[in-house]
Design a protein around this nucleic acid. Structure first.
Lengths: 152, 152
DNA sequence: ACTTTATAATCAAGATACTTTATTTTAAAG
DNA sequence: CTTTAAAATAAAGTATCTTGATTATAAAGT
């Protein structure tokens, strides 16, 4: 759509740096909360989704179902999460985040959330649409390629 | 800068989904390559940076220095990485990715890279600037808040 | 209806990976 | 030029993960 390779390159680099910074942020939080990597990844997902299932958590953490069970046991013992029956599937379980966790995690995430909102406030409606559109497209690429890898 | 809360919300959601999809993509790759989570995280970093150090890898994976050593030993034995002397610091070591890894990883990442480039091609220069600007701002927020958490 | 197959979660045993502490080497600071 | 700090490694002990079996329920096939 245009000839400026530098601008395109900048976008790719910025997306990469963004990914790296997310990982480092999560590690910093995990360390503060006394979590290992998988626990930290799990709670990041729950911080986003509020409710999940052991199956989904297993996929997101890359753990087997057995390890997921014991990891959730640990988080439950720490009072960070709770299990409850899944009303739609009596085999299944729902995993929810506990106040106990939210309370101690909030002070650590409040800053970024505020900063992100302030950043977003700087853009016009048209610009926001471009940004969201790009992010959605980026995500779509990843989801599709993930499927391809899984089916290989 | 404007009053449309929906658009702002969409951007935040799109950014979140993007983060989730990255994690799932990395897990899918890691599984294909027979890597555990930390090894996968480590090679993702090396896939981006090409060269790193055990210290940086420890920070990025959340491992202690001791575990980092043994994890790098494993990756070295698999021929995925190599260590070499750091010319600027005789205590230190540089870690590089091996052709062995790039060769088998390439078929898995080629698809997303192509799709991402095609996505980027759709935007005008002005739009690309907005996108890069946003991503850089987002990253800056994370880096700053990570520092704050570390210093708490 | 009911038999078979598949999915969700858990558990226990064994294998793997991680943390901690100490050690070596070199750099930076006093 | 001595002291303190930083980088990487090693070994012992601990924690976590994988595998395979088990239970319960759902979905599919006959």
């Amino acid at each position: 759509m245009n000839g400026n390779e530098d601008l395109k390159f900048n976008v790719l680099m910025a997306a990469r740096d963004n990914g790296i910074s997310s990982v480092l942020f999560r590690n910093a939080m995990g360390k503060k909360l006394g979590l290992n990597l998988t626990e930290s990844v799990c709670l990041t997902l729950l911080g986003i989704k509020s409710v999940s299932t052991p199956t989904e958590i297993a996929q997101y953490t890359g753990l087997t179902s057995g390890s997921t069970t014991t990891m959730l046991d640990r988080l439950e013992k720490k009072n960070f999460i709770r299990r409850k029956a899944n009303p739609n599937d009596r085999r299944g379980v729902l995993v929810e985040i506990n106040e106990e966790y939210s309370k101690i995690a909030f002070p650590l995430v409040a800053g970024v959330q505020k900063a992100h909102k302030e950043l977003i406030d700087k853009y016009s409606d048209t610009e926001l649409k471009v940004i969201a559109d790009f992010l959605v497209g980026f995500t779509k690429n990843m989801v599709e390629e993930t499927k391809k890898i899984d089916s290989k």
